[in-house]
């Protein structure tokens, strides 16, 4: 186990390992991002990235096929794209279409190309595509959630793993993501290539307070799962038999969590859900054979 104490001068809001599990990027209210190298029980600070003018809420590593690239989301309303080349980090792009805090940023499944999903308190969601020729193009969804968007998550590619080329290109057309907002709603959006934008497919009602996080399970099974974590101290598992079908709702636990639930995150295979709350506890969950959600342990202090 690796423990990193006092890595930043203020609270830390995100810590993510890269694709290989060897580098850790952390982001903090001290306005910086730090990169650590992690090997066995050792960790070493290799870089501190400065540039944001507010707390940095979230960071996301791009797939290594695009290079060593990190995106960061800040209260200052900006997303920076950082790149490491020959051991030197620099900002290669800046995304500033938002007029308020950017709360979440995540790279699309690499099959979609270098695409970033961005959620902001200005109520908008933006999707930025970084093309191979160096240009970018953005899609902005105005008023995606009234009062603000707190989180957004990509759906895994539909029928990923299919070897038939036709299916693959079809799956790229079927791009979807989910978002959660301060209107207490979870929304599902689907790409419409004819108008080159994302259109609202489903609105999921269930939470009674702000939705803090949404996480689409990366599972390649036919059934889709989305976990939503809320200020109302509940986690809801939304599931769907096949793309486009109706979503059904199931509370992760009968009783409420002891505090606000900040984060819900699936393991890489999608079989374990981790939930972190305002009480500093991280609990693990999995679906039993009869379709109920049961505890799979807790990360102890």
């Amino acid at each position: 186990m690796v423990t990193i104490g006092n890595a930043h001068e203020d609270l830390i809001h995100d810590a993510v390992l890269d694709y290989y599990g060897k580098r850790l990027a952390t982001s903090s209210s001290d306005k910086t991002i730090k990169i650590f190298e992690v090997e066995n029980d050792e960790h070493k600070l290799v870089e501190t990235l400065r540039g944001h003018e507010g707390p940095v809420w979230q960071v996301s590593w791009a797939h290594p096929k695009f290079g060593v690239i990190l995106a960061s989301a800040s209260y200052d309303g900006k997303v920076f794209i950082w790149k490491e080349e020959n051991g030197k980090w620099s900002i290669i792009s800046q995304h500033s279409v938002h007029q308020a805090s950017v709360n979440s940023v995540s790279w699309a499944p690499h099959e979609y190309g270098a695409q970033l999903l961005v959620a902001s308190s200005d109520g908008k969601i933006s999707i930025v595509e970084y093309k191979e020729d160096g240009t970018t193009s953005s899609i902005v969804i105005e008023r995606a959630h009234a009062i603000g968007v707190n989180s957004a998550t990509w759906a895994p590619p539909v029928s990923a793993g299919s070897s038939i080329e036709n299916d693959k290109s079809k799956s790229l057309q079927e791009r979807r993501f989910a978002s959660g907002g301060s209107d207490n709603l979870v929304k599902i959006w689907k790409f419409n290539p004819e108008v080159n934008t994302y259109e609202l497919e489903h609105t999921l009602e269930g939470h009674t307070d702000w939705v803090r996080d949404v996480a689409w399970s990366p599972s390649v099974l036919a059934r889709s799962y989305i976990a939503s974590a809320s200020q109302d101290r509940t986690v809801i598992i939304w599931s769907q038999d096949k793309p486009g079908a109706n979503w059904s709702k199931q509370y992760l636990t009968e009783e409420k969590f002891p505090d606000v639930v900040w984060r819900a995150n699936w393991s890489l295979s999608g079989n374990i859900l981790a939930v972190s709350g305002g009480d500093n506890k991280v609990t693990l969950w999995r679906e039993s054979l009869d379709g109920r959600w049961e505890s799979a342990g807790q990360i102890d202090e």
């Binding site: 609270l11 993510v16 984060r263 699936w266 981790a274």
Partner: peptide, 18 residues
């Protein structure tokens, strides 16, 4: 704003908590 705790998964069954 600003969550006080966090969790994410990494390659090889690693889990990162804040």
């Amino acid at each position: 704003y600003g969550r006080s705790s966090n969790v994410s998964f990494g390659f090889g069954g690693k889990i990162v908590t804040v």
